[in-house]
Amino acid sequence: MTTDHDHEACRALFEKLSEYIDGETDEVTCAAIKAHMKACPCCITCLETLKRTVGFCEGVPEEPMPKEFSRKLRETLRHLPVSP
């Protein structure tokens, strides 16, 4: 499927997509992106896959810290020469 509107508009908005996802674009840009998305399925895919990338990054679980390292860390800090 292709669209018949100006591809240059996609390129211009492309570099603003992260700011748009983060709610950091100005009102004019935000409105321009919203209007463009209504007419451009390609840019919707682009936006949604980028949003999902951010969602995955935010959702990666933390790993437990090795207990042995935690013990060694405390031991090292206890023996530092000057106390805070």
């Binding site: 499927m1 292709t2 669209t3 591809h7 996609c10 390129r11 492309f14 399925p41 390609c42 919707i44 895919t45 682009c46 949604e48 896959t49 949003k51 999902r52 969602g55 995955f56 959702g59 990666v60």
Partner: peptide
């Protein structure tokens, strides 16, 4: 990262972006 033209972009949202995050991640 700029797509060359629209022909290179899938207009169908891929499953990994459409399904709930907890089902994919």
């Amino acid at each position: 990262f700029l797509p060359g033209d629209h022909a290179e972009i899938d207009t169908e949202l891929p499953d990994w972006a459409a399904m709930p995050i907890h089902q994919v991640l």
